[in-house]
Amino acid sequence: MLIALLVFLFPLAYSPGPGNAFFAAIGATRGLRATVPALAGYHVATFVVTTVIGIGTGVAILEHPVFAKVLSAVGSLYVLWLAVTFIRAARAKGEDTTDAAPMQRIGFWDGAIVLLMNPKAYYIIAVMFMQFLAPSASGNATAVLVITAVFTLNNLAAFIVWALGGRALATLFRSELAKRWIDYLFASTLLGVAVWMAAPLFN
């Protein structure tokens, strides 16, 4: 079951997606160390949400489309705001002044909010449990926790890989002009994440 679960999760975690883009952007523009607080927030939230859905009490959110739309709207606006901070950082790099605004710090709660305000993550988790948690085990806390731990750790590993990839890209282009355009590139990526999170609003 664990092997099948990992095969199921691998393309979800390692292929391009909102979480990957978010952490690749932070890694590229601020370094791997700067991703640690957001990684912690995202994956603590992942563990809690996945456990709650696994034991059945969180599935109710999937039955309330209005609430899901509210989550989509708030999450999309929040990621849009993060994208704006990258654009401001890029513009600051192009200014010959020491008075430029400091780069916005992305911390624990930023990572947590990206997960909590993404209703599509809730659906993915629910589908995972429908596939890999036998009905007879739905009340089995051990089974739920094992699946939750595998899901969370697999995502964590994938996001670290993407953050390192973003940092490697930034290392290849060390000039100030290149760094400025990398900020713009990942700001655009976050704008795409915001649009992706807003998609349920139009369904």
Rank of each mutant, 00 (worst) to 15 (best):
I3K: 12
A4M: 03
L5Y: 09
L5R: 04
L5D: 05
F8K: 11
P16T: 08
P16D: 13
A24M: 09
A25G: 15
I26E: 09
G27E: 11
R30F: 05
T35R: 03
T35S: 01
A38G: 06
V49T: 09
T50G: 10
I53A: 12
G54F: 13
I55C: 00
E63Y: 12
P65W: 11
L71S: 14
L71D: 06
V74E: 13
V74N: 13
L77F: 07
L82T: 00
A83P: 00
A83S: 08
F86M: 07
A90W: 09
K93D: 11
G94R: 08
T97W: 14
T97S: 02
M103C: 00
R105L: 11
R105A: 02
F108G: 02
I113A: 11
V114Q: 06
V114T: 11
P119H: 09
K120G: 13
A121G: 15
I125D: 14
M128N: 04
Q131E: 08
P135M: 10
A137Q: 03
S138P: 00
G139H: 13
T142Q: 08
L145W: 04
V146Q: 02
T148C: 15
V150S: 13
L153V: 05
N154I: 07
N154D: 06
N155Y: 08
A157P: 02
I160W: 10
A163N: 03
A163F: 09
L164Y: 13
R167L: 01
R174I: 03
E176I: 13
E176H: 13
A178G: 10
W181Q: 12
D183V: 02
Y184R: 04
F186E: 04
L190C: 08
L191V: 03
V193T: 01
V195Q: 02
A198K: 14
A199M: 04
